[in-house]
């Protein structure tokens, strides 16, 4: 096992807690859904594409986003639901890009399936647009090397992992997740940083994600 590099700048773990804000905006048809997807704040798009990760963290696979779930289960548009569920969120580095992909998918479907415009939800089953308000707090956990980093990852709150992997990359538009950024720029291990960047965190439960990350770092330490 090689000697571990001790960082000059430690990695401070933050945690993120969220509060759900209501907008009072609701859609009953696909056309309304599309119109509102274009108008609502980015925090709404973020909420409806990431809520499942935290609320159903014990279950996988899960309906990957609220739009896909509503279109399939309420409007019965399975094909569009599948297309929306298959949008590869990890490919987008901004909420703007993700919003455009979702809007384009619905618009394209409506052009070739005009009857879908006539479908509407029953009373009480409308799509309600909701926002996520994030509160970001520093924790006391600080790592100077990969060993300490893996040790903290094993026990840190799931919200912290969520913040550094999902929120930092997409919502705060940092381009990469925080773990890869630190491992590359401070520890200097580009290979491990890339390995973490490359894998798709959306296809895991949050606890599954924790295990995969810990394993990657342990394997690296063992080399």
């Amino acid at each position: 096992m090689a000697e571990l590099i001790r960082a000059k700048e430690p990695f401070r773990f933050y945690t993120r807690l969220h509060l759900t804000e209501l907008t009072g905006l609701r859609a009953t048809t696909l056309s309304q859904l599309l119109e509102l997807i274009r108008q609502v704040p980015g925090s709404c798009i973020y909420h409806h594409t990431h809520r499942f990760l935290q609320q159903h963290q014990y279950l996988s696979p899960e309906p990957p986003n609220d739009f896909a779930y509503w279109v399939t289960e309420i409007l019965g548009e399975d094909e569009l639901g599948e297309k929306l569920a298959s949008i590869d969120t990890v490919q987008y580095s901004t909420i703007r890009g993700l919003r455009e992909a979702i809007a384009f998918t619905i618009e394209d479907y409506l052009e070739s399936n005009t009857l879908a415009k006539l479908k509407f939800s029953r009373e009480g089953e409308e799509f309600h647009f909701i926002k996520s308000v994030s509160f970001v707090l520093p924790t006391d956990c600080v790592a100077y090397d990969l060993n300490e980093f893996a040790g903290i990852l094993r026990k840190i709150t799931i919200d912290s992992i969520y913040f550094h992997i999902f929120e930092a990359r997409l919502r705060l538009e940092k381009g990469h997740n925080d773990f890869s950024n630190w491992i590359d720029s401070v520890i200097g291990d580009k290979e491990l940083a890339d390995e973490i960047s490359r894998f798709d965190p959306y296809s895991h439960t949050l606890d599954g994600l924790r295990s995969v990350l810990v394993k990657m770092i342990e394997n690296r330490i063992a080399v």
Partner: peptide
Amino acid sequence: LRDYMLLFLSLYHGDDVVYL
């Protein structure tokens, strides 16, 4: 309890991402 405390804090912060 967590939501209520975040709610109280939201009264003093208007943004969608709040650093505490």
